[in-house]
């Protein structure tokens, strides 16, 4: 029975990790920004969704939609208020822009965390399951909501693939991640591409936050840990590589789940961290990294 449970739990947790990390790696690949407020945006989506559900007595889907919207707005605020002024500032030397953005997003993440703790306390909240009840799979009792979350993650990842590889809006994104300068020379308006990537980022991260809240619960204190987890998955997979991130998410997700079930829940994050250290030593560019 445990084997089946590990398979199912590992699948869903990895899918959530993957969804959370994809936005992080996408925004780095396309716009060069390492957004250390990433976890904060997930937390905003989760807490606003949860609060709206209680405040306006919404059904789980309405609440989830509002949560995703909040995530999108938070992503826009991050871009327009925190990042763009630094990118455009003439007083910051071009070669220091990256470190300024890194610091700014780190501080912004702390501000979000403290702000959310002030508004909602640091107590974890869980959003109502999208589908209640349990099903029995080969004798293993699994919440329907958990399966639904795994499926939803992959639907969103699939949609992302369609947008990026199959639409005329998406192709410039790919190009921008390869060679932003050439794209600019070809006459593409980079700020439009950036705005588009932040839109996708906001939706992805909002969905990840809402689904996480519905599965395991989220608190304002989760922000730092969520950023760290996305960051290590992305480093493991290769900075900027979407597929690498997905593979890394599954490596980390399954290692954690197997450790928790077979060895001890206390040691859950340890083996994945060891692997991360080894990868940084032996293959610094990550699983599918280009550099």
């Amino acid at each position: 029975m445990t084997a089946i449970q590990i398979l199912i739990d590992g699948f869903v947790i990895s899918a959530l990790y993957g969804l959370g990390a994809i936005g992080f790696t996408l925004i780095f690949g396309v716009t060069g920004v390492l957004n250390l407020a990433h976890g904060g945006i997930m937390v905003i989506a989760a807490l606003v969704g949860w609060d709206a559900a209680n405040r306006f007595s919404l059904d789980p889907y309405g609440a989830a939609a509002l949560g995703v919207l909040a995530g999108l707005i938070a992503a826009y605020v991050t871009y327009f208020v925190v990042i763009r002024p630094i990118q455009r500032s003439k007083r910051i030397p071009a070669d220091e822009t990256e470190i300024f953005i890194l610091t700014a997003t780190l501080l912004w993440g702390v501000m979000i965390q403290e702000g959310m703790a002030y508004l909602f306390s640091d107590n974890p909240v869980t959003m109502r399951p999208l589908l209640p009840g349990v099903v029995h799979i080969l004798g293993d009792r699994t919440p329907v909501n958990e399966l639904m979350i795994g499926v939803l993650c992959w639907v969103v990842i699939g949609l992302l693939w369609l947008v990026v590889y199959r639409t005329r809006f998406g192709k410039p994104l790919l190009a921008a991640s390869e060679n932003p300068r050439a794209l600019g020379l070809l006459g593409f308006e980079m700020s439009n591409i950036h705005l588009f990537s932040w839109t996708i980022y906001g939706i992805l991260t909002g969905v990840a936050g809402v689904l996480l809240a519905s599965f395991l619960g989220v608190s304002s204190a989760s922000a730092g840990g969520l950023t760290a987890s996305a960051f290590s998955i992305v480093v493991l997979g290769g900075l900027g590589s979407v597929w690498g991130s997905l593979i890394a998410a599954y490596v980390v997700g399954y290692m954690e789940t197997i450790t928790a079930y077979v060895i001890s829940p206390q040691l859950r994050p340890i083996p994945a961290l060891i692997v991360l250290v080894l990868v940084v030593y032996l293959r610094p560019q990550g699983i599918l990294g280009r550099r």
């Binding site: 445990t2 449970q5 739990d9 395991l216 789940t257 928790a260 206390q266 859950r268």
Partner: peptide, 19 residues
């Protein structure tokens, strides 16, 4: 069973207890 207060996923713990 003593677990870390940072634990997010309790499935393995409940699974072990049920076993």
């Amino acid at each position: 069973i003593r677990f870390n207060p940072d634990t997010t996923d309790f499935t393995p713990i409940f699974n072990k207890i049920e076993g």
